[in-house]
């Protein structure tokens, strides 16, 4: 089961949107910055249909703009499946509607924020704008959301039910969410909250312009981990850690939240090249999609930008293992390979 990344697009706290550079002008946030907001493009340019755009909240605009850009950049190859992933969906609209229920005592509530609060809003709007009446799914399982979407896409491509699948991970920061999570003890021990929208156009067949290929992925819960998951994942790919040129880690910066990941990291051979990405995008449920975006770019550009904090050396970059962990609960592994 493998697929080719024909094109990808990222709106993140870094200058990643509609650019040919790979994190060369990234700004590593300072230790005091607890909340990383996305750098947003001019949505009037990215989403031309004013009739639909006027209702879109921040997260919908991020998702839709990233999705449209991803498809446009693939010479307009239309997807035959659209699969989105989000941990909390259209959170600001959800909060807005809740707020109005409370403030107006359940009377005279504007329907728009309710309509837009549903988790599949972004997937639906992308379908509407691309006029794609195809398969349309939305996965909403914490740190397994993007992983589920990608697995679904790879299965569809292998089955021949789809030839080109648009897959994206999207989540937004809201002030309320930041405060609630702060009360729960987050953002105090090194982790930063983040947001973003990463989309990938995946194909079953290679073309001459592919960015990279995704060859395997696996998910597991930290609570049931026996520490052998990476080994068995590599076994199933017919590889050993020696075959991996660089390990890209989704460390949040909070040692407690990264416990499973950090404990595995200790077992890495001395000198094995490692890099991290979450200090650039922040922690959120679908942050692994930013990790995959980085891994694919490492393979495309064959260079590791300083912003990813590389340690160790690699001969070349042919295979990258991404290990992501979300709140020491959802762990995921992705294997990406260079296209020939």
């Amino acid at each position: 089961m493998k697929c080719y990344i024909r094109n990808m697009s990222a709106i993140s706290p870094q200058p990643t949107f509609a650019t040919d550079s790979f994190l060369s002008s990234a700004v590593v946030p300072s230790a005091d910055e607890k909340c990383l907001r996305a750098i947003e493009p001019d949505y009037k340019v990215c989403i031309k249909e004013a009739g639909l755009r006027r209702r879109m909240s921040h997260v919908i605009k991020m998702g839709v703009a990233s999705a449209l850009n991803c498809v446009e950049g693939a010479n307009g190859t239309l997807p035959d499946a659209i699969i989105t992933a989000t941990g909390l969906g259209c959170l600001a609209d959800t909060e807005k509607f809740l707020q109005s229920i409370i403030e107006n005592d359940e009377r005279l509530l504007n329907p728009t924020s309710f309509i837009q609060s549903t988790f599949n809003t972004i997937g639906g709007q992308v379908a509407l704008l691309l006029k794609c009446p195809c398969y349309n799914f939305t996965y909403v399982h914490r740190g397994f959301s993007f992983e589920s979407a990608l697995l679904d896409a790879m299965m569809q491509l292998e089955d021949g039910d789809a030839s080109n699948v648009l897959v994206g991970g999207i989540d937004e920061v809201t002030d309320t969410e930041f405060r609630v999570m702060e009360r729960m003890g987050f953002w105090r021990s090194g982790a930063k909250m983040g947001e973003g929208a990463q989309f990938f156009l995946l194909s079953s067949q290679p073309t001459s312009q592919d960015v990279a290929q995704i060859t395997s992925l696996r998910t597991f819960l930290a609570s049931t981990s026996d520490g052998t998951e990476v080994q068995s994942f590599l076994d199933s790919c017919g590889l050993t850690i020696k075959d991996i040129d660089c390990v890209l880690l989704g460390e949040s910066g909070d040692a407690k939240m990264d416990a499973t990941l950090l404990s595995w990291k200790k077992s890495l051979p001395v000198g094995k090249m490692q890099a991290t990405f979450k200090h650039l995008c922040g922690e959120y449920q679908t942050a692994s999609s930013f990790g995959v975006w980085c891994a694919a770019n490492l393979l495309r550009y064959q260079t590791v930008p300083d912003a990813l904090r590389p340690v160790g050396k690699a001969e070349g970059l042919r295979r990258i293992l991404v290990f992501n962990s979300y709140r020491n609960n959802n762990c995921s592994l992705f294997l990406l390979e260079k296209v020939d």
């Binding site: 005279l108 504007n110 728009t112």
Partner: peptide, 13 residues
């Protein structure tokens, strides 16, 4: 149709 619902709210408010 969503705007129609919003206009109904507007008229009442």
């Amino acid at each position: 149709s969503i705007d129609a619902l919003e206009i109904i709210i507007l008229l009442e408010k």
